[in-house]
């Protein structure tokens, strides 16, 4: 029974991946919107873009990790 609950928990944790996807899309979309308004400033901000994406994605990776832990380590 506990194993079953862990699987359900893993599935719930995997929702976090979708949330991270929304976050990453938000970052990239807003970057694109800004870049189209002022293309000359866009080139200098790609590093910031990647850092933002990395931070947004890291939290999704955390939820993925929680899912994995529930699957395999509990």
């Amino acid at each position: 029974m506990e194993g079953e609950l862990a699987h359900i928990g893993a599935g719930l944790a995997a929702i976090g991946s979708g949330a991270a996807a929304i976050g990453v899309g938000h970052v990239a979309g807003n970057f694109l919107a800004g870049a189209l308004r002022n293309p000359s400033a866009a080139a200098g901000q790609t590093a910031t873009l990647f850092i933002g994406i990395a931070f947004a994605e890291a939290l999704g990776i955390f939820s993925f990790l929680v899912a994995l832990l529930l699957m395999f380590a509990v």
Binding site: A54, F55, E57, A58, I61, F62, L65, L68
Partner: peptide, 13 residues
């Protein structure tokens, strides 16, 4: 933590 888990998690996933 995030620095290392980001890399490992991305590759593992």
């Amino acid at each position: 933590v995030s620095h290392s888990i980001r890399l490992a998690g991305n590759m593992m996933a």
